[in-house]
Design a protein around this nucleic acid. Structure first.
Lengths: 194, 194
DNA sequence: ATCACATCTTAACTTAAGTCAATGAAGTCG
DNA sequence: CGACTTCATTGACTTAAGTTAAGATGTGAT
């Protein structure tokens, strides 16, 4: 599995043998079964994840309802808010499928960056990219209706629609399962008449 | 005006005299009048801004409609998406008020970080904070109705409601001006009866 | 002072999401 | 196998935002 992590990193940086060996020696990779809860509301955590295989979901529990805010799949990283804010977590993070994750804690960062300063620079650049992506997603969400958001999801992450139960997708689209059902029906009718 | 920038930075880092002098010598600060367009849809730009005074607004032009996605006020920074993506800009960035801005271009970064590596580390940390903030805003937006978003805005950025025309606020809340009008009316009636 | 333009409000009507309740379909477990 | 649970769909009704159009208010310019 390390190979997949290295392959991902190779898009941004060419690892020296020393760096690769250090990463391997850090023993970051874990297999986690479906249904595992990586983080609960109210917990403090300093642990980040990078998905090598599988799917993670983050959700808030509001008035007894799960409000899904994100799905993380292959080659996506998550640093939960509570890691950055140092506050108890406002949401849950769970495995939707059996997963293989690379995981590290924030206290491993400083010594690692000290030893390999190139990585801090990489993390800055990557962080800026993630911020830009996040803003673009937000803008797209603000400027579209639930139906458009569903179509956009079909385009951009068609795998999710297969991997994830509809009531979780609905909540991710900001609507109730009943409404997603109706949207799908409407779209089928449109396609039929076209 | 440099003093305000330094005071902001002092929350995160204590500048050496050399660093402060270098920043001053870079001559970053500009006064820009209300109505100025800092960035147009379709333009390429590598320029970032930090608001010392005034208010910036970013908006998409979709089917002839302005869709406002952000307001940036005192001590907030903007690096437009096109700077990171190196693509033509998808949106506009304009001055809602007379502004005093610190501004720099991304090609100034590398030599500056080389000379003062502490700043790259600072930018990584700050970028992570901004990403977390952005995610929290997104989550709050997804999990609330237009009315709740308006109340949230009243709480978190009451100044905006005074500084910015309502049709821009409405678009920022994801609704039409007519709906914002009705929401305000509903809330007044609730308050009256309470 | 008035005219033009921008902004905000109100009203009547349409559209789509929320709510509540019932039913159907699929999978699990005893 | 049948009982149970979970998830998806459908229908009837409610609620709130969108649409269109009309006025009210305000502001700046000449």
């Amino acid at each position: 599995m390390e190979q997949q992590l290295f392959q991902y990193l190779s898009k941004y940086i060419t690892l020296t043998e020393e760096e690769a060996n250090e990463l391997i020696s850090m023993d970051l990779i874990r297999a986690i079964p479906k249904g595992s809860i990586l983080l609960r509301e109210g917990e403090r955590s300093i642990r980040s994840y990078f998905v090598l295989k599988g799917c993670l979901r983050s959700y808030y529990l509001i008035d007894g309802e799960e409000k899904t805010t994100a799905f993380y799949t292959e080659n996506q990283g998550v640093t939960p808010q509570c890691v950055t804010t140092q506050e108890p977590s406002a949401y849950f993070l769970v495995c939707v499928e059996d997963c293989v994750l690379a995981t590290s804690t924030s206290d491993m960062e400083a010594p690692f960056f000290e030893k390999f300063p190139r990585f801090e620079s990489l993390c800055r650049v990557l962080g800026e990219k993630m911020l830009t992506n996040q803003q673009m997603s937000f803008d797209a969400y603000m400027n579209s209706t639930p139906e458009q958001r569903y179509l956009l999801l079909l385009e951009n992450r068609p795998d999710l629609i297969q991997r994830v139960p509809q009531y979780q997708l609905a909540s991710y689209l900001g609507i109730k399962p009943e409404s997603l059902s109706r949207i799908r029906k409407r779209l089928l009718e449109k396609k039929r008449s076209a």
